[in-house]
Design a protein around this nucleic acid. Structure first.
Lengths: 331, 331
DNA sequence: TTGTACGCGTTATCAC
DNA sequence: GTGATAACGCGTACAA
């Protein structure tokens, strides 16, 4: 239990070398003789010395810190996204500065994130105001949006193939004989919700089926349930509901079975989006669209580290293929 | 889109004052005349200057950064714990350095966390090796364990009243006429699992009921389901299963109803722990024990900030009362 | 290969 | 009140 944490000067003194030598001993590929290197490491061990990353950041003008602005951690998809991104980043030697974007004063928090000189920022948040992304971008920090993109190509992003995913759902529903397909959107101002709906609609249209109804559930359980009740009260009733995420789809299944006594999938098909863990639970067995989360995370990091390495990349938008996972809520 | 981020020297030059004046303008309660303060703020605005937190940390010997070592983010309880802790901390002006403790080389990651000079560390991880906590503590960093404690009082912690929670379950089960109560433990080497089991057993004993069976499900869905199958294959069959967390309890309910065709709660009671979101979902309606997560988070931060303020607190262990939430899996 | 000297951006101390 | 100056701990030209 030593008083103060040892500095490179302490190590240098004990090892009988200069501070530069200590620094070099910790710099891969620096000119140090094996002997001095050993002396330094031995002394460091004695003092249980660890280089001070804060001081290094100041000197190197690079903190090796990545900011992640997260939200909706109650949604398993985003919880897993945060976990996956973090694991991959820390494996590559980066530290993670976390910011939860659910407090009202989020705008005041971003400058604080920046003040820690993060090398880049990842925004895995479909429900986040786009203003933040634009501001970050303007401040010159490398930024990558995940699961969302902005028009006008102002900031790089990676997202799932929402149009393709919606189209795959349309194909499945038409193929299994559905005629009155409803779409339960997430948030109107998000690219994900819009594109999933458009993919569905367009692909239905190509097969001479018109979208029967549309409602909005804000990507959340309660508003979703309310919207589903509205949809299921239409006459004639829809024979299929495609929900813009799993959270709403799980609620839809509950409302349909328990409140309306509907036989799913015989009289009603329900499809979700994200293929999050609960969709596979025995009580639900929900058909859903897999976004390939690990791949999205991988690419997000690749885009960001590319910018960090100064690779001359403009604003690019990468799309990851989606995959329909059929379970027991479709026939 | 300026080239470099402005420093206090740039602001000082533009405002026609010294760097000290700039620093003081950003230090609450420092000796600055309103006029110079205004000049500085105006110049800062022009250059869109933000104090560099890294440099400040170096100078002040305090980073205002708290490390959180998280894991099991697929468990809604821990996802919410991370979210709540983070929100509270950032509200108090702290930054959060996140470390996901699910990679094999976790031991190598801790020093990196420390190298960023975090002011303190919170460990909300029941499944984390206790060695890490002890090492951190020994390094002199303020540490608080959440939802777990260590014998011998070596590191501060806050946890739910697991013994009381287990006892409350025992009372409920005896009161509703159960005689063959089984306990599905989490991980043997965790205080939470041990205490919940002990609370159950002791309180059963006080009412002349012996624990009928015990098994281990590692706090996870699949191992939990396997253990439940073993328990339900006993003859005579248990008439109640108390699971050490919700994840296993949800799986237990599925196995009982779908695989064994058991009528829950008529022929079998199932109780979980954590009162996480899915327990309230209509398909489950699982009776569970609420840990009062927000209160646990609040106290954890209070303990930590107390240590940071140099308040002379030893090693203390705070226990938060638990509350039984009865739903449809008990009668 | 090694050491010296300076810079990174900020705060604390001290004269003025 | 204000402005020099010295830390804070480290990386790195540059000289040796």
């Amino acid at each position: 239990m030593q008083k103060k944490t040892a500095s490179s000067a302490d190590v240098a003194r004990l090892a009988g070398v200069s501070r530069s030598a200590v620094s070099r001993a910790y710099t891969p590929g620096a000119y140090v003789s094996p002997e001095t290197r050993q002396k330094v490491l031995a002394a460091a061990e004695m003092l249980s010395y660890r280089p001070n990353a804060i001081a290094r950041s100041l000197s190197k003008q690079s903190s090796q810190l990545i900011g992640i602005v997260a939200s909706n951690l109650d949604n398993p998809f985003y919880a897993q996204m945060l976990s996956t991104l973090s694991k991959m980043l820390q494996q590559q030697g980066y530290g993670i500065l976390l910011l939860i974007a659910e407090t009202p004063d989020i705008d005041g928090l971003i400058p604080r994130l920046l003040s820690y000189q993060v090398d880049g920022v990842i925004l895995p948040a479909a429900t986040l105001g786009s203003q933040i992304a634009i501001e970050l971008q303007r401040s010159g920090k490398p930024v990558v949006l995940v699961n969302r993109y902005l028009r006008h190509d102002v900031v790089s992003s990676v997202s799932g193939d929402n149009i393709g995913g919606g189209a795959a759902v349309a194909d499945l529903l038409v193929r299994t004989g559905h005629q009155r397909v409803a779409y339960l959107a997430g948030l109107d101002d998000t690219s994900s919700s819009r594109d999933r709906g458009r993919g569905l609609k367009d692909q239905l249209a190509r097969q001479r089926v018109a979208l029967y109804a549309e409602d909005v559930g804000q990507y959340e359980r309660e508003p979703g349930a309310v919207a589903v009740r509205r949809l299921l009260s239409l006459t004639p009733r829809p024979d299929a509901i495609f929900c813009a995420n799993d959270t709403m789809a799980l609620a839809a299944l509950e409302v349909a079975r328990l409140e309306f006594g509907i036989d799913v999938p015989r009289d009603l098909a329900i499809v979700g989006y994200d293929n999050s863990a609960p969709t596979a639970w025995p009580f639900y067995q929900l058909t859903s669209v897999d976004q390939n989360l690990p791949e999205m995370a991988r690419i997000a990091i690749e885009l960001l580290t590319g910018k960090l390495a100064g690779r001359p990349s403009g604003i690019d938008h990468v799309t990851v293929p989606a995959r329909l996972v059929e379970r027991a809520t479709t026939r």
